[in-house]
């Protein structure tokens, strides 16, 4: 019986001795103000849609031109990045008159070696 009383005393002492850890409240971070300023979603400039980290060409161009109110579209961004595209779009529109008639099968026989030489120097890797 004597021993039990002693146990009670020791355990009470122990509990009282521990400190209380105060927990401070957490603050939420605000969204970056850029997208609010330009009205564009993160994915316009950042490659990862969740924003942050690497930027795409439009993002790069927007930062390059001192973060104006509007993000340049792709073609304008490219020119800002020093990429000239002199492409006349009309080349790619089709005229509306009918396509030429199919030529009947009239092909001169080809020498095998000639095909091989021709095929060999293709562009690319």
């Amino acid at each position: 019986m004597r021993r039990h009383r002693m146990f009670i005393i020791v355990s009470v002492l122990l509990l009282a001795a521990t400190l209380a850890l105060a927990f401070h409240p957490q603050t939420a971070e605000a969204l970056p103000e850029y997208s609010a300023q330009t009205g564009e979603p993160c994915a316009t400039c950042h490659l990862s849609p969740s924003g942050g980290g690497p930027r795409g060409p439009r993002g790069q161009a927007w930062v390059g031109s001192g973060k104006p109110g509007v993000v340049p579209d792709l073609v304008e961004a490219l020119s800002l990045l020093g990429i000239q595209l002199d492409v006349d779009e009309s080349q790619y529109q089709a005229p509306d008159q009918p396509a030429p008639e199919a030529q009947p099968l009239a092909v001169e026989p080809a020498q095998a070696g000639q095909i091989h030489q021709w095929l060999r120097n293709y562009d690319g890797n």
């Binding site: 957490q26 939420a28 971070e29 969204l31 849609p49 969740s50 924003g51």
Partner: peptide, 9 residues
């Protein structure tokens, strides 16, 4: 990202 930020993706 930060799960507590309601605007985060």
């Amino acid at each position: 990202g930060d799960l507590d930020d309601p605007n985060s993706l």
